[in-house]
């Protein structure tokens, strides 16, 4: 009973965190699912977003303007990865790792140190974990929730435009895309930029929420993003077919991820092992479709003939 109470009392915090990371996970969805590229830049650009936002807010900038600059910083980080891949022929995963590593230095330079705190009592912020249980508009669940829905709306519109459709086509079939006159290199850069813009934007929210930006705040972010994408697809994939709903599923996946993590901690799981747990879950879920195919392949061989139609 007591545990249940603890869980319930932690729920608003988990949901807030889940929503903030949901924006990040949608960024991962853009590269991982739409572009079919696993982009590791996000571990760096997430912290870049947080660092940029905190430094600018401390400097007295308008909060939303600071968020916008954080978004642009993410776009630039993504552009670097995209160009490393398309102009220099570096495989996307390695290109992402290179950018991520460089961002470590850049983030240190932005903040001037490894950790920059920002106190909600002294500075006005958009979101803070202090407000998670307040029944008010500035409750992070409401603020981030509205922003998240707006973002989903904008992305839904964008991926329905001529440009957005051509990015989707690039992710599905590059040969076909080029044959239809689509500049696949340009589209890849654009997609990776958009993804990292969203990731940095999410980092900017998280830094305010937790009251500090940290050089390590993006560590393992890609795994959390993937976990959210995978959980969302596993739970809602069958019912959510529409693109906007699929993005919503990713955000819900992120919320569920944080609720589960909170539950596991409340139940007394060693918090030091959390990253191991996350990575294991992601590995298993990534393996399931592969295992399914292997199982299906064996099944075909056993059945008779199996005529393949043209």
């Amino acid at each position: 009973m007591e545990i249940l109470q603890q869980l319930l009392s932690a729920l608003p915090g988990s949901v807030s965190q889940g929503l903030i990371w949901g924006i990040m996970a949608i960024g991962v969805y853009v590269t991982y699912r739409i572009l079919d590229v696993a982009d590791l830049t996000v571990d760096g650009s997430f912290a870049t977003g947080g660092a940029v936002a905190v430094v600018l807010i401390l400097d007295g900038w308008n909060l939303w303007l600071a968020m916008l600059v954080a978004f642009v910083a993410g776009l630039i980080a993504g552009a670097i990865t995209g160009l490393l891949h398309t102009l220099m022929g570096i495989p996307p995963i390695l290109a992402g790792i290179l950018t991520q590593l460089s961002l470590y230095s850049i983030n240190l330079k932005i903040m001037g140190k490894a950790n920059q705190s920002i106190n909600v009592n002294k500075t006005e912020l958009l979101v803070s974990l202090r407000w998670v249980k307040e029944f008010a508009f500035h409750n992070p669940i409401i603020t981030v929730g509205i922003v998240l829905l707006l973002l989903i709306g904008v992305l839904y519109w964008f991926f329905g435009t001529e440009m957005g459709c051509s990015i989707r086509a690039t992710g599905i079939n590059q040969n076909m895309s080029r044959a239809q006159g689509i500049n696949t290199s340009f589209n890849q850069v654009l997609g990776i930029m958009l993804s990292n813009g969203l990731v940095a934007f999410s980092g900017a929210f998280l830094a305010q929420y937790q009251g500090f930006a940290d050089i390590k705040m993006g560590q393992g972010a890609i795994v959390i993003g993937l976990a959210a994408v995978i959980i969302g697809e596993a739970l809602f994939g069958k019912i959510f077919k529409n693109f906007a709903l699929r993005l919503l599923a990713v955000a819900l996946g992120s919320i569920i991820y944080y609720i589960v993590i909170q539950a596991v901690i409340t139940l007394g799981f060693d918090a030091n092992l959390l990253k191991l747990l996350s990575a294991t879950i992601v590995a298993v879920f990534l393996a399931i479709p592969y295992w399914k195919r292997q199982y299906a392949a064996k099944h075909v061989r056993r059945s008779k003939g199996g005529e393949k139609n043209a």
């Binding site: 435009t161 001529e162 086509a169 239809q180 006159g181």
Partner: peptide
């Protein structure tokens, strides 16, 4: 969607509706 992509071959892909 495939047909709409093909209908825009050789054109700039803008922010107009994809179909």
């Amino acid at each position: 969607e495939n047909l709409a992509l093909a209908a825009r071959r050789g054109q700039r892909r803008t922010l107009r509706s994809g179909i």
